[in-house]
Design a binder for these strands. Structure first.
Length: 598
RNA sequence: GGGGAUGUAGCUCAAUUGGUUAGAGCAUCGGACUGUCGAUCCGAAGGUUGCGAGUUCGAGUCUCGUCAUCCUCGCCA
């Protein structure tokens, strides 16, 4: 019998013993059915939960008969009365103390047999889930993730709105700029051969808002980067983007902290303390080998170059002779690590381009504390000094890495992370928020014989470093900052250049010619001529925030319709072919195909 | 672009050194059953072992190529 599905009285996770006797109308999907021949049960599910419906052939023969045909994922509506379960309470579900005696049942839509069960602990592969994303998203866990995503967005909007930020949209069809990631291009029909670029971020537009007199701008905005994917990188992703005028670094960090606090509270009910600690880029690199250190565990890097110089270990010596250094990590209790583990680590280091991973263990010998195994024979002569410098004790292992500063950082950061995992040193429920500040302005790339911006070309140098733009650009520190959470970069921003002269100077330093800067950035340079206010901002990687707060391991789990690692949509099979007429209209040749035909 | 892992029923997996008709659980279909809730019991159906070559008397298994998915290096101002 038809049930007025638009008059739903409750959601399926809501009914309790206190509702006993009430007539209710429920809608949702058939989660499971149990037909005992006489008595039949259907579990009806929506995002809020599951309620058991009972069909009795004596009291409701029509509904009972129809119930026998209901299968998993049929879309159904029922009308019935809430009844206490008496002896048959099901403690496993929140609605388990009641059931609904189904008087009317309406099958609104039959379902094919679903390819996998709609439940939280699904064993379906990610591939299967993404190809059947609609069913996957019905799973309560996915429902909660996307609903939490909404709460985070709302928390950010509310906070920034309360603080006088206004949301203004920026164009999706923009201009390709030099530097940075590869652009997604959109052909112009009106100007064949010319292309729009989808924004990598609304960077310049938001700076123009500041120059236009909008004090405070924010936007939850889609960004696009045509680079290879990772579990934490998608080609299109969402930023919480903001920009403020008349501010210094601290002002930006403060408003972000307020939003982050609210996101934690509204999202997962956790209170994080403010202010978040800060660490300079150089300190982070020296102590952890990475500009986004995870401070939930120790295993810091120690420079032992001067001690290494006293040994006869050739790989230490050759590294030092080349102007490199030797650093190490002490793994407390690492003496228990098996040969298999330490050899495995060395192999992994080789896998990412390193030469190996010298290791030794601190033991109690006959004549005192000494080094044993691995490269011990080279290091025992400096054992005492080494232990004093590193604080290593009996039972510890020491991992060494010689090489250039950059290589040592890269490989020891890797070792540190892996050891943290292997030795179970990473606390699960800790939220380690950290501002990393004082980034260098530029990075010299030897292969290209030129400087690149570490952040982006619009980042302002520290005032006191401006003179060094001429003399020693590599030493200039930027007013840039990143926010990291448990070793993941969650936000990045800077105070921007608001002087036309300094902006031109930076372009020159980056090898951007007058001609090119004129072509690409004239609008910015022009805007800087009319009283541009000092300004700065930040962009938060929104998908990553959702990923972290839901403890998901992949961005794909927090985006409704994500791309695979090969940057295709497994649901729609985008990107796809287009009609030749479309290409002709756009003035585009499919040259590889044309060549292949010839 | 480089390296690695995986690919067998709708789903998750198994299949000894290469050896008979490729199995199991769940799901599905039919039957039984009035208190189930991962229902149970009886029965059935379900396979181009990703695809293509090759080696072999014989290939899910070995080799080569290719495709897909994931991880990773490069890349990601």
């Amino acid at each position: 019998m038809a049930v007025p599905y638009n008059k739903r009285t409750h959601k399926n996770g809501e009914l309790r013993a206190s509702h006993a006797g009430q007539e209710v109308i429920l809608v949702g999907w058939a989660h499971n059915y149990r037909d005992l021949g006489g008595m039949a049960f259907i579990d009806i599910r929506d995002y809020s939960g599951i309620t058991q419906i009972k069909f009795n052939p004596q009291t409701d023969p029509a509904a009972h008969k129809l119930a026998g045909t209901v299968r998993r994922e049929d879309c159904i509506a029922i009308r019935g009365n809430v009844a206490p379960r008496g002896e048959n309470v099901n403690p496993k579900i929140p609605t388990g103390e009641i059931e609904v005696e189904g008087h009317d049942l309406d099958v609104l839509s039959k379902s094919d047999t679903p390819p996998f069960a709609i439940e939280d602990d699904t064993d379906a592969s990610e591939d299967a889930r993404l190809k059947n994303r609609v069913l996957d998203l019905r799973r309560p866990k996915m429902q909660e993730i996307l609903r939490l995503r909404h709460r985070l967005a709302k928390a950010a909007r509310d906070t920034f709105g309360d603080q006088g930020f206004i949301e203004i949209e920026t164009p999706m069809l923009g201009k390709s700029t030099p530097e940075g990631a590869r652009d997604y291009l959109v052909p112009s029909r009106v100007y064949p051969g010319k292309f729009f670029a989808l924004p990598q971020s609304p960077q310049l537009y938001k700076q123009l808002f500041m120059m236009a007199g909008f004090d405070r701008y924010c936007q939850i905005v889609r960004c696009f980067r045509d680079e290879d994917l990772r579990s934490d990188r998608q080609p299109e992703f969402t930023q919480i983007d903001l920009e403020m005028a008349f501010v210094q670094v601290d002002d930006v960090l403060e408003v972000v902290e307020e939003a982050v606090v609210k996101m934690f509270r509204e999202g997962i009910g956790v209170d994080v303390p403010t202010p978040f600690p800060r660490m300079s880029y150089h300190e982070a690199m020296d102590r952890f080998g990475i500009d986004r250190p995870d401070l939930r565990f120790g295993l810091e890097l120690k420079d032992i170059s001067t001690i290494a110089a006293k040994t006869d270990f050739s790989i230490f010596k050759s590294s030092l002779d080349k102007g490199g250094l030797v650093k190490c990590i002490v793994a407390p209790g690492g003496g228990d690590l098996t040969r298999k583990v330490t050899d495995g680590l060395a192999e992994e280091i080789k896998g990412i381009g390193g030469g190996g991973l010298p290791v030794t263990k601190v033991v109690q010998g006959d004549s005192g504390v000494e080094l044993s195994t691995g490269v011990a024979k080279f290091l025992n002569p400096v054992c005492e000094e080494l232990l004093a410098a590193t604080g290593a004790k009996v039972g510890d292992a020491i991992f060494f890495m010689p090489g250039t500063y950059a290589d040592v950082c890269k490989y020891l950061h890797f070792v540190r992370s892996r050891l943290g995992e292997i030795m179970n040193l990473i606390p699960e429920d800790e939220w380690n928020l950290l501002w990393v500040v004082d980034f260098p302005m530029f990075e010299w790339v030897e292969e290209d014989k030129r400087f690149y911006s570490l952040h982006h070309p619009f980042t302002a140098p520290r005032d006191e470093d401006i003179p060094m733009l001429d003399t020693d650009p590599g030493k200039v520190i930027a007013k840039a900052y990143d926010l990291t959470l448990n070793g993941i970069e969650m936000a990045g921003g800077s105070i921007r250049i608001h002087s036309r002269e300094i902006q031109s100077q930076v372009f020159k330093l980056l090898g951007i010619s007058d001609e090119e800067s004129h072509e690409k950035f004239q609008f910015l340079l022009d805007a800087l001529r009319y009283g541009a206010p000092p300004h700065g901002g930040i962009a938060m990687g929104f998908d990553r925030w959702v990923m972290m707060l839901t403890k998901c391991e992949s961005l794909r789990d927090v985006i409704a319709f994500p791309k695979t690692q090969r940057a295709v949509c497994p649901l729609t099979n985008a990107p796809g072919e287009v009609a030749d007429e479309q290409l002709v209209e756009l003035g585009i040749d499919k040259r590889p195909e044309l060549k292949a035909k010839k």
